[in-house]
């Protein structure tokens, strides 16, 4: 059927004769990761990725894609290729296999108890 869209009618699609060429690799550029700091004082967080030809355009597109509805105070973009990350296999190293309570506040819960015991053993001086 003929288009109901006046813009398309005016463009006369039957005359377009678009060549049926496939998009070549990198036609849509390369990828960037986007980080967003929601409020002053908060950490910037990864919110997603996008395609862009260079960092400046990546920032323009990130603003359009990730901040058009909710405000933020700063926006970062990083070429995906610049990110080095750990693998699934390395995930295990983040789970302590040995008791590490010596480096956690929970490792020091009976300090007060010790002090209380000590205080009650010794009568207060008169």
């Amino acid at each position: 059927m003929a288009s109901l869209d006046p813009r398309i009618q005016r463009a006369e699609p039957e005359l377009w004769q678009i060549p049926d060429t496939a998009l070549a690799p990198l036609d849509h550029w390369t990828t960037y990761e986007v980080f967003l700091q929601k409020t002053r004082g908060s950490h910037a967080q990864h919110v997603g990725s996008l395609h862009a030809p260079d960092p400046e355009m990546a920032l323009v597109l990130a603003k359009e894609q990730y901040t058009r509805r909710s405000p933020c105070v700063s926006l970062w973009v990083v070429p995906t290729a610049c990110i080095l990350k750990t693998t699934t296999e390395e995930e295990g190293m983040f789970h302590p296999a040995v008791d590490k309570t010596y480096r956690e506040p929970q490792g020091y819960l009976n300090t007060r108890e010790r002090l209380e015991k000590y205080r009650h053993r010794i009568p207060p001086s008169s």
Binding site: T31, H46, P53, D54, T80, A81
Partner: peptide
């Protein structure tokens, strides 16, 4: 839009799968 995308494309560009 192809000519715009081509004009902007950096010759050093390499494809990288987005991270996450």
């Amino acid at each position: 839009g192809r000519w715009v995308r081509e004009a902007l494309r950096s010759p050093q560009a390499q494809y990288v799968t987005p991270l996450a």
